[in-house]
């Protein structure tokens, strides 16, 4: 805890001193009384913020986000890069009397916040894991003579996903998830496995025996038999800039999302890992944390290769290739991917 005087303290002391000087000179009892009243403000201004900040306890009850509208409806509850986050807090103590922010991250960095009622808003920033460790709280209530500051623990981990688009090849343009059931994952005949129910899944897909056994809603995951799994190889060079790396991840996520939207299985090669075929959730989580310099598997096994370099992103799809500038917007990426087919 830290305590520091504010600018009004010297003014208050000087005023009390001057009035006391006059009091001693004139012997007027009212001036002694006025001096006492002014001086007594100082300890109140010192103790009140200390106790206020000492009694404050905070906890996060919910995390809301707004900004990016994911093309796949199932992702509406996720946090995406660039979103505006709102951590809804519950407090013990007088939170109204305190200033909150910024957040202290596990990395030691701070993240600026803006308080709205009982929530604090912040920018989600880049994709990755946002590990909140604490929040800096301060209070000068009620008189603003001293400010007491304290670092309040506020453990919260938020996965910030990369943004993505759903490229629409010309022949399927106008079909967007979840408008057409056939374009959705689980709409085909090829059995992929069982997975948890997610909003948007058809009730007809619920596998009741497994649901009864596990106590959780489970659905049958299938893919169109006619669609062959897509395979994407992502490589982020060690000297890739952050924007290039993010762009490469966004491109990869968009390609995978395209497969999901079409109900096709896909595979993602990244580093030594390979996500289970068709597991969008795991793919997105892995892409969120993809970092530069990770060694890749042999690109020969993947027909689509995305490589983030220092100056941009190279995409190779069979015999077609394209270089993307790092400052490309998502809509432009979508157009390019649709063009590449």
């Amino acid at each position: 805890m830290r305590l520091r005087p504010r600018r009004r303290l010297p003014g208050l002391l000087v005023a009390a001193g001057v009035i006391y000087f006059f009091a001693t000179n004139s012997g007027v009892v009212w001036l002694y009384l006025l001096t006492a009243l002014l001086l007594a403000l100082v300890p109140i201004g010192l103790v009140a913020p200390l106790l206020t900040i000492q009694r404050l306890r905070l906890g996060v009850v919910a995390v809301d986000s707004h900004g990016f509208e994911p093309p796949l409806r199932r992702d509406h509850a996720r946090v995406f890069a660039g979103d505006r986050l709102a951590l809804r807090l519950e407090a013990t103590g007088n939170m109204e009397a305190c200033e909150l922010g910024p957040l202290v991250l596990a990395s030691g960095d701070t993240r600026a916040t803006h308080r709205v009622a009982s929530a604090i808003e912040l920018d989600a920033g880049r994709r990755g894991r946002l590990q909140v460790e604490a929040i800096l709280a301060s209070s000068a209530w009620p008189l603003g003579i001293f400010t007491a500051e304290r670092r309040l623990p506020l453990a919260q981990t938020i996965v910030v996903n990369p943004r993505y688009c759903v490229p629409r090849p010309a022949e399927r343009a106008g079909i967007r998830e979840p408008i057409g059931a056939s374009s959705r994952r689980g709409a085909g005949d090829q059995f992929l496995g069982l997975r948890q129910y997610q909003p948007g899944d058809s009730q007809r897909r619920i596998h009741w025996p497994t649901t009864a056994r596990t106590g959780e809603l489970m659905v049958i995951d299938t893919a169109l038999e006619s669609n062959s799994p897509g395979a994407f190889h992502l490589e982020i060079a060690a000297d890739a800039g952050p924007r290039s790396a993010d762009l490469a991840v966004e491109v990869t996520a968009s390609l995978a999302a395209g497969c999901v939207a079409e109900g096709r299985a896909f595979r993602l090669d990244l580093g030594h890992e390979r996500t289970p075929t068709g597991s969008w959730d795991e793919a997105l989580a892995r892409l969120s944390l993809a970092s530069a310099g990770e060694p890749g598997r042999s690109p020969s096994s993947s027909p689509v290769t995305i490589r983030a370099g220092r100056d941009g992103v190279d995409i190779a799809m069979g015999d077609r290739a394209r270089w993307l500038a790092p400052d490309l917007a998502l809509l432009e990426v979508q157009a390019i991917l649709e063009e590449l087919g």
Partner: peptide, 19 residues
Amino acid sequence: WAACWLVLAVIVFVGLPRF
């Protein structure tokens, strides 16, 4: 806090050195 302040002011008033 206002009540504490007034009580404290009385104490300071009583103890304030006077010439």
